[in-house]
């Protein structure tokens, strides 16, 4: 199992100028990033849509590298997104899946068939040309350069440690340091989008 914070520290060294949608990794990424204006930490506008949002952004900006840190709970809500992504196959899209086998933010209840779903096989059968399964930090460190140096779309299934939250929602400390409006305004400015 991989520690998300440690994984993101390694990723940061390879991030380059990419646009990063940190998804469920957002609470760690906002403490690590040194290029906030190219980050799109939206938290959870509506669960099930992160892959499609990042894909749409990748389609819109084909000359920019787009990196998503999706989650297995999110992807399970809209698995068909994989077929759409593979159909249009944006070459600039890198789809990391953080799989902790549970709904961590609601108390750690297991996702359906938590330990047996083969997300790499799923992505491959949907049409992704390149897929990886990584369950330890050493392999991630060894493969991350290779992953980001090839044409997308690439799907990377990461087995991560669950970080379970049981505090009631209204008592949790918000990790977001910008509003949605600020995040979108910053990335549009960075991309010279009106």
């Amino acid at each position: 199992m991989i520690d998300t914070l440690e994984m993101l520290k390694i990723f940061k060294n390879h991030r380059g100028n990419s646009v990063v949608i940190p998804g469920r990794g957002g609470k760690h990424w906002v403490t690590l990033t040194d290029n906030q204006s190219r980050d799109v930490p939206l938290g959870d506008p509506a669960m099930g849509g992160h892959a499609s949002y990042a894909f749409g952004l990748a389609l819109a900006i084909p000359n920019e590298t787009v990196v998503l840190f999706d989650s297995e709970g999110d992807l399970l809500m809209n698995t068909g997104a994989l077929a759409t992504i593979a159909d249009l196959a944006p070459k600039n899209f890198y789809h990391f899946l953080l799989d902790n086998e549970c709904y961590a933010t609601t108390g750690g209840q297991p996702v359906p068939n938590a330990q047996k779903v083969d997300y790499t096989g799923l992505a491959k059968s949907m049409g992704y040309g390149s897929t990886y399964f990584i369950d330890n930090l050493e392999d991630f460190d060894q493969k991350i350069a290779e992953i980001l140096n090839q044409e997308g779309p690439v799907f990377i299934h990461l087995k991560i440690n669950p970080e379970i939250e049981n505090v009631p929602i209204n008592q949790r400390v918000r990790w977001q340091n910008r509003t949605w409006d600020q995040v979108l305004s910053d990335i549009k400015s960075e991309l010279s989008v009106k």
Binding site: S52, Y53, A58, L59
Partner: peptide, 9 residues
């Protein structure tokens, strides 16, 4: 969500 991503870009 696809449309939102496209619009962001």
């Amino acid at each position: 969500s696809v449309a939102a991503g496209l619009a962001t870009g």
